[in-house]
């Protein structure tokens, strides 16, 4: 089984080296690809100097577009599984093996969840997470404990679907849609690290926009979508 680690990176010059070196040294059995989403800092130079496997997008497409590029890469080179690993170092690759093992049981998507067995704290940020969880529950009847966590693994069928269709962002609304449409999704407990350098993309206006988009999408729009595969 061939597995691809997709690392979308936008202005991650502070973290990208640590993330990729860790992967290359400690997990050489996995193929990886860095998707540089039109970064304006030294992310791309660092990767080229170090000889990392990198795809340079000529323009900034946003996370969904960058991730889709990774899925297209996986599709082009015929990988069996693909996992998203954030370039800020929050995702620990030690869980890849566990997730791949779970995938072997026949799931379409394995979600890395911080709250599968741990309790979800009551912070403003987690309030958003709770709302999205609730929306997915209302929409699909399934409980997704950590919908916003980006560490998700996809099987071959999903790789093709993500690579060739519109509106398949690596976001909770896509997961909700797929669950609703009969994809088999399973979560496992993971720990996540704090971001080591650089700045997070999230601020208050962006968070409000994100929440509005997610809730509208999960509760309303996805009901009208057709899954043609």
């Amino acid at each position: 089984m061939r597995l691809l680690v997709i690392i979308p990176a936008y202005n991650e010059e502070m973290n990208i080296e640590n993330v990729v070196e860790n992967l290359r040294e400690n997990y050489p059995q996995y193929d990886y690809v860095v998707i540089n989403d039109g970064s304006t800092d030294r992310t791309s130079q660092i990767c080229h100097e170090k000889g990392y496997n990198i795809v340079d997008l000529p323009i900034n497409l946003g996370l969904a577009g960058a991730f889709k590029t990774g899925m297209k890469y996986a599709y082009r080179y015929d990988y069996d599984m693909a996992i998203q690993l954030d370039a800020d170092g929050q995702h620990n690759p030690k869980y890849i093996a566990i997730m791949a093992e779970e995938m072997g049981k026949g799931y379409d998507i394995i979600l890395g969840s911080r709250f599968k067995t741990e309790k979800k704290p009551f912070t403003p940020r987690m309030l958003g997470s709770r709302l999205i969880s609730l929306a997915i529950r209302v929409s699909t009847g399934r409980k997704i404990t950590d919908p916003t966590a980006g560490m998700r693994m996809y099987n071959k069928k999903m790789i093709q679907e993500f690579a060739t269709h519109i509106n398949y962002g690596p976001e909770p609304d896509t997961i909700s849609f797929l669950v609703k449409q009969g994809a088999s999704v399973h979560g496992i407990q993971v720990e996540m690290e704090e971001r080591k350098g650089g700045v997070s993309y999230l601020n208050l206006p962006r968070s409000v926009m994100y929440m509005t988009r997610m809730l509208l999408s999960i509760l309303f729009i996805q009901n009208f979508r057709k899954r043609d595969i």
């Binding site: 795809v55 323009i59 497409l61 889709k68 297209k72």
Partner: peptide, 16 residues
Amino acid sequence: EYRVEELAQKIALDEQ
């Protein structure tokens, strides 16, 4: 936007 995205992704993958 969809078409620009598709083009950018194709260019990037071909380049790699």
